[in-house]
Design a binder for these strands. Structure first.
Lengths: 208, 208
DNA sequence: AATTCCGGAGAACAGTTGTTAACTGCATGG
DNA sequence: CCATGCAGTTAACAACTGTTCTCCGGAATT
């Protein structure tokens, strides 16, 4: 039987975390396909060979980062997309939630935006998979809404995909405005809100 | 006076083209920040130092690729977004046009999608600038449309941005489906059409 | 208390990288 | 026709890369 805790495993997890954090930091100014294994271990202060005790390659580390960045985000979906009395209020809440997430985890957001179409296939695949799960969850939530009565399955899928893509666009918009003066950040939120509102309008008149 | 043609300058342009093409080819499986100067010259069959006769660095080459990939695309905007009798017909024409462009220049599209949020700042900047120009042109075209009567400047800007983003999303969707069976490509076109149609519906009911 | 297990260190490997300098050959302009 | 300009070459540089093998110390197991 393998103890889940213990001095040994705890220390291992600590260096693993250090590797992930160091990589995430280095990835703010480059992309994964140019991230060197030695570069990461040097930043942590550990021997290059120690890297192999945790990851097969930097691509492997990238996949782990994807799970970390997106895996813990699923619970957020339900509360965001779920129906509310006021449509505008739900939109405002969603925009605020995205803005807060970007401010709290900018490196994670940058990593996803960068590697979604990046040069490392397994990582692209992992992101695509997570986003597909997101879309499916959004679709399931949309199906509950009374607004979606009479919608075809393809229509629901289309709208869910649109929402997921819009979420990423909004996130990367906030990311660009992170270090900018507050006025620009306000304008970003304004734009995102307007766009979501237009989609919402299109939604309510879809079956005309 | 410097002759624009001549055996000398012609040969220089030929190797320059060879460098750009080789780089574009190599960038199908990696990102710019990991693209080596020697890698490019080796692919062309030229000495590494010859690279410097054309570009200061690989980032510089990247900027040149951006101009090549997006610079020649501006004339397309007007004809695509310009008003038509039938809205659905315009949408279908736009989707077809994007699909055709992706099929004709897949490497260019992949490059833009990859480096838009990639690890090389000057290239990101160049892409951002070109896309901003696109958005402005789309906005100018939208302003002419009778559907946009009574729209505020911020509303027009929002919609133009939405269209530009949607164009990129659609392009990268087609890109993923390029080597896939025809049925998947058809579904991609279907989804893109539906999404544009929903935006169109939202547009016509915006001022309710 | 003795033994196994295992995360990490150390050294060495062949190969790669960007950049420099000094060169060569040939089209160009006077 | 001769002198200049300049795209491309050759050689060399220090620094870097991923990966292998061997080893060490201490926690975990018995």
């Amino acid at each position: 039987m393998s103890h889940t805790s213990g001095v040994r495993q705890a220390q291992k997890q600590r260096t693993r975390r250090a590797l992930l954090d160091a990589a995430l930091g280095l990835l703010e100014e480059q992309s994964l396909s140019s991230l060197g294994l030695r570069e990461v271990t040097r930043a942590v202060g550990v021997a290059p060979t120690a890297f192999y005790r945790h990851f097969r390659s930097t691509a492997d580390l990238g996949v782990a980062l994807v799970e970390e960045a997106l895996g813990s985000l699923h619970p957020m979906i339900r509360t965001t997309v779920s129906p509310a009395e006021d449509s505008d209020e739900r939109i405002a809440r969603a925009v605020e939630l995205i803005a807060g997430h970007v401010a709290a985890h900018p490196a994670h957001v940058r990593f996803i935006a960068r590697e979604r179409h990046g040069g490392v296939q397994p990582v692209r695949e992992a992101i695509r998979e997570q986003l597909a799960r997101f879309a499916e969850e959004v679709k399931a939530e949309l199906a509950k809404d009374t607004t979606s009565a009479g919608w075809s399955d393809a229509d629901l899928r289309m709208l869910a995909g649109l929402y997921v893509d819009q979420m990423l666009i909004t996130a990367s918009l906030f990311l660009e405005a992170l270090d900018a003066p507050e006025e620009e950040r306000r304008r970003a939120a304004e734009t995102a809100t307007r766009q979501l509102r237009l989609i919402s309008v299109g939604r309510t008149h879809w079956l005309d």
